[in-house]
Design a protein around this nucleic acid. Sequence first.
DNA 1: GCAAATTTGTAGCAATGGCTACATTTTGTA
DNA 2: TACAAAATGTAGCCATTGCTACAAATTTGC
Lengths: 137, 137
Amino acid sequence: MSNRPNPFVKTRRDHADETAEDYVEAIADIEIASGSCRVKDLAERMQVSHVTVTRILSRLAEAGLVARQPYGPVGLTPQGLEMAAASRVRHEVVVAFLERIGVSNATAEHDAEGMEHHASEETLAAMRRYLGLIEDA
Amino acid sequence: MSNRPNPFVKTRRDHADETAEDYVEAIADIEIASGSCRVKDLAERMQVSHVTVTRILSRLAEAGLVARQPYGPVGLTPQGLEMAAASRVRHEVVVAFLERIGVSNATAEHDAEGMEHHASEETLAAMRRYLGLIEDA
DNA sequence: GCAAATTTGTAGCAATGGCTACATTTTGTA
DNA sequence: TACAAAATGTAGCCATTGCTACAAATTTGC
């Protein structure tokens, strides 16, 4: 149990892609929770300055995921909504799975936030299977 | 199962820290496998150019994790060895765990590479428990 | 309605991690 | 030994994500 082959071929998604997913997911959550999402809300949630949020939102708008106008609220495009939905599903599977194996909710939420970007479809399927959802071995 | 609190307080280790662990782990592996580790070996393993490797190694040397001299092999300092050992343990726990829930070895290695940096002690403990190693609920 | 507080934007700096192109050093071999 | 090949190093470019400081717009409250 320690043969390390060479499966390092771009194991992780690009960091920028992970950021996009995190922000899109956060925007969806905040919209649901408070009706609308502002730069300030994202800055608080991501624990970064509003400057960082603004710059990242520009890139996401450029990529067609986010829609917004200066000094206005932050919204998701259809494409952004789609990504948010997918991210949310992944997130929930990972959280539920971690809790199932005995991790506290707080830690599960915490760890899932980082792990969800690295769980492949195969791993997510295994988690769902373990949870008794859907597919079987 | 969708209450999203606000556990986003620096969920993930800094990316630079993850890089350090990945490299240190890789160096240890390569040394074991081929006797010595060269910049070229790391470039192949990490799938990046030798330039990127060189720059990262400079930073790691600066941080006291890596020891090396120009055009020479790459070695680990005692501190680097310590980090490598810890990383390896985490890696192996995650891989073994994923395989246990039905993920193929290839995918387990692949996903673990990214996930291991985001699994907290609590989650790792839960995985070990599930594997039947050590601690109990 | 207007001043103060809050929010957002912009300028500009730093660290990290990619790269290509080119210089230099080591190695290997004819 | 001398030259060619391989491995490293350096210069310099880009993108991403942090930041502080300062400017501008929007909201609030009196």
